[in-house]
């Protein structure tokens, strides 16, 4: 069974999510815009998935670009089962 651990950033609005995607792509890290996981409800429909190794860089970009985020989470996915905790 495939196991994967990654970070998820949720945003206050779709526009900020799009802005975030652009800003994070600019610093050449591996990210992906995904629909907000069901376990995290209180945010807009788009989130950004990233590699937890890049957490510091990601936080920096969020600060620099004044992105309105709702939260940053860590997700552990095993097959189709997911566990998400706020970090």
């Amino acid at each position: 069974m495939k196991k994967e651990i990654y970070g998820v950033i949720t945003f206050k609005s779709t526009n900020h999510a799009i802005k975030g995607e652009k800003a994070l792509k600019n610093i050449n890290i591996n990210i992906k815009t995904i629909p907000t996981p069901r376990e995290i409800t209180s945010s807009c429909g788009l989130s950004i998935k990233f590699d937890l190794d890049d957490l510091l860089k990601v936080k920096e970009v969020i600060k620099e670009n004044e992105l309105a985020i709702k939260g940053i989470y860590k997700t552990i996915r095993k097959g189709l089962n997911k566990k998400t905790i706020e970090i």
Partner: peptide, 19 residues
Amino acid sequence: DELGNILMKGFIYTLTESI
């Protein structure tokens, strides 16, 4: 278009997570 692209990415991604 921009929104359509994002939605499509989300759609395909979600397919990988739904049985």
